[in-house]
Design a binder for these strands. Structure first.
Lengths: 194, 194
DNA sequence: GCCTGATTGACACTGAGTGCCAGACCGGCA
DNA sequence: TGCCGGTCTGGCACTCAGTGTCAATCAGGC
């Protein structure tokens, strides 16, 4: 069993690396799954045993991060303001699978490819669902009341700020760190004047 | 030319009505474009001359609304707070093509169908791009500075609040009006404690 | 060495979306 | 009336993503 998952993880990472190289070289839409399968030396059918969709190759690690963010949020002290707790939880999770210039290229690709952008936002919706229960708890909200939107709104807004910051980060070619942009976005939203 | 567009609009509306009936009857994913084309008495190929994607049948009117929101925003007085101006601009645009129970069904379908949800968010991104310039103007931001994220953050957050409110609206079966939910979401985001 | 279960590749299929082409339609014109 | 331009339409073939099925293969346990 341990050997299994190790082998599986190896293949998984190999496909990811191969596909990413192709994506960055000739673009996401211009790369077909047949291309990836051929380059990775597997069958088309096997690709779909590792990834549900082509988008998941790029965004797969992002999904897994969602649970890490949840854990980080739950680890924040109870007396911390919800907003700050969410911010710190997000910042504590860094994806270190690629170096920063590559990350910038990937981010840019995601933000410029509609299907990737959409999928990425869907992943963010999953994060929302993951983080909302803990925020409800911190707000003392009834966990089952569908009409108490406070937690949903807070989580969604924080993630939106992250998205806006990521967008600006790619537009500015990574000149300003993501954290700075995020804090600027958050400050704008919470400023009394608006 | 006037006759043309009138005919075209008639066909457009006919396809929409036919397709919506099928969607609400048997579900979005379970309805193929062949089904729609057959029911509407057109060819499959012609369907794609009126709609780029299947999702656009449901969300097409939403796209057009974006421009109305922009106009409404530009019509708000200059001394109104940006946040309030955005809120009022959004509220002033109501889609009256369907009665409320039907709207609730459509909203629920959109929020429960991943591909529709994704497309709907893409449309919201388009709204963002449409509304941001005017907000930048009101904030006195450099129109070309990619690192000034204030306007993007504000617009994105307001739209996020609308999305959260819409989600709660469907979860509560329309018991509480959308406006009330939106204002509750906005209040939660802007509350000092967070 | 055999058995069991998981993985794999090959094939066929659905369904969305696109390019192409020939024919129908319609207003204008002689 | 008959011709002529442009446009809309339907039909066909195609690409590509994603799914179901099945037989072959490969690994470890007995």
């Amino acid at each position: 069993m341990s050997l299994w998952s190790r082998t599986r993880n190896t293949v998984y990472r190999e496909i990811t690396a191969t596909a990413m190289a192709l994506f960055l070289e000739r673009g996401f839409d211009a790369t077909t799954i047949d291309d990836i399968a051929a380059a990775a030396g597997i069958s088309r059918r096997s690709f779909f045993r590792y990834f549900g969709t082509k988008e998941d190759v790029v965004l797969g690690d992002l999904i897994a991060s969602g649970d890490l963010v949840r854990q980080a949020l739950e680890a924040r002290p109870d007396d911390e303001e919800v907003w700050a707790a969410l911010r710190n939880a997000l910042h504590s999770v860094k994806d270190t699978a690629f170096d920063e210039p590559t990350m910038l290229k990937i981010f840019t690709m995601v933000h410029q490819t509609p299907s990737l952008r959409a999928r990425s936002i869907e992943k963010h919706l999953e994060w929302q669902a993951l983080l909302t229960p803990e925020v409800r708890r911190r707000l003392g909200a009834d966990p089952a009341d569908p009409l108490d939107v406070r937690a949903d709104a807070l989580v969604a807004t924080v993630i939106t700020c992250l998205d806006v910051a990521g967008d600006a980060w790619t537009r500015g070619n990574g000149a300003v760190p993501l954290e700075t942009l995020f804090d600027a976005a958050a400050a704008a939203v919470r400023a009394p004047g608006g």
